[in-house]
Design a protein around this nucleic acid. Structure first.
Lengths: 117, 117
DNA sequence: ACCATTGGTTAACAAAAGGTAACCGGTTAC
DNA sequence: GTAACCGGTTACCTTTTGTTAACCAATGGT
């Protein structure tokens, strides 16, 4: 039997962790894209389809954000043998782990709007 | 007896709520300030003291961030009759509601660092 | 030949966020 | 008088973030 000492993160490590999270999930588009992919899970999420449905996003931003999300293992990118070639994106199992955070942001934001008004 | 229908927020309302949350809690300094104020709850958190201890922040940013946090009812600002005059800041009860979010950001960020490396 | 669709890339620009340094009034210690 | 401490504010600059519009190659339809 192994004795594992749970390593308490230092305050600085915690701050770095918050920075990491906000860097990956923050910004104008990333969570919108993630939520869109989750809601359309049954469908085939091609680049153009996402661009049409995440209203307002440009090709440049969508391309960049999808790359960031893929690098961070939150989504997958798969090229399909259709004509013309289409590329479809999907959330990974790991990517699902962001939704508890988004839900807490939704809840807090909704409550805050009540509080402030 | 009253029948209350729980109002499900629309997708757009949820996105607006996320935007609100990230606007209020995002950025480089706000959560750092909040966490600092929480950790030093027994002490008297004056402007200069916060500035010394939240390393790297300038007077300009600290002033602006504290104003934002106060407007959003997360902290209080109280001028004290000391000489020279000092101003002390403290988290409100409502302000404590942000910490569950910060903890989820910490946990996710720490886990993500393991995942990526 | 010509146009449309897909999945992008590129350059140039604008807006937002943050950093630096100087300055301010009021006070108190020397 | 002058220097230092407090709690800021102001102007100016840089960096980051996001927008706009043009362009590209590959494929298919007419």
């Amino acid at each position: 039997m192994e004795i594992t000492t749970k390593v308490e993160p230092t305050c600085e490590q915690e701050l770095a962790a918050i920075r990491d999270s906000l860097e990956i999930l923050g910004g104008k588009w990333k969570l919108r894209i993630m939520r869109h992919l989750r809601n359309q899970i049954d469908e085939n999420n091609t680049f153009k389809k996402i661009q049409r449905e995440v209203t307002g996003i440009s090709a440049k931003m969508l391309s960049k954000e999808l790359q960031d999300l893929e690098i961070n293992l939150l989504i997958t990118r798969s090229v399909r043998n259709t004509r013309p070639v289409t590329v479809s994106y999907a959330i990974t199992d790991y990517g699902l782990s962001v939704f508890p955070i988004t839900e807490s942001l939704v809840d807090w934001g909704l409550n805050h709007r009540q509080k402030i008004k």
